[in-house]
Amino acid sequence: MKASANNLNQTPIDGNVIDRCKRGDVRAFRELYNAYAAAMYNICLRMTNNVSDAEDTLQEAFIQVHRNIGKLEREASVTAWIKRIVVNHCLNNLRKKKVYFEEVEEVEVAEEAGIDEDSFTWTVSAVKSAIHGLPQGYRTVLNLYLFEDYSHREIADMMGITESTVKTQYMRAKEKVRQIVKQQNLIR
């Protein structure tokens, strides 16, 4: 069960900074950027899979944040709002690169299928490397679900595919990661 679309537990800036940003104060906007840049850059990096594209996407997303901050309502979560802009930018840039998030036939993929996890060890570097090597569609779904804490329903809406496709792609992505990590264990 997903608690929220937000892995930053609290907004790291106060409402005064947002008010100043709305009045066009560049120093306040820098405070906002400094508070969120690292977390949002990590989202971009996971989604685009390379540093240069991640930095470009981050920059474009913050330009949009700047343009639209006047529309941000006082009660809204700043973190969730900025995060949604960043994720949408990542998805749009992937679409521009002709990455299509296709529907797949609904295939039952059994939870924890096939591979005996007792027989190998998870490590951060092995998992990172396995995720890095996933096909773009699988990686996008897996990142949005596991790292960005969006629900299957939210991911389906953002990517324009069905919820069942999201679930299937997630299960396949997870299975693929397991296989890659297991192979890496065997090589050692």
């Binding site: 892995n7 840049a37 690292a38 850059y41 990590n42 990096l45 991640a54 930095e55 981050l58 951060v124 998992v127 990172k128 790292f147």
Partner: peptide, 9 residues
């Protein structure tokens, strides 16, 4: 989770 984070831009 934290070990998956990279330094900022």
């Amino acid at each position: 989770r934290d070990a998956f984070e990279e330094p900022g831009p």
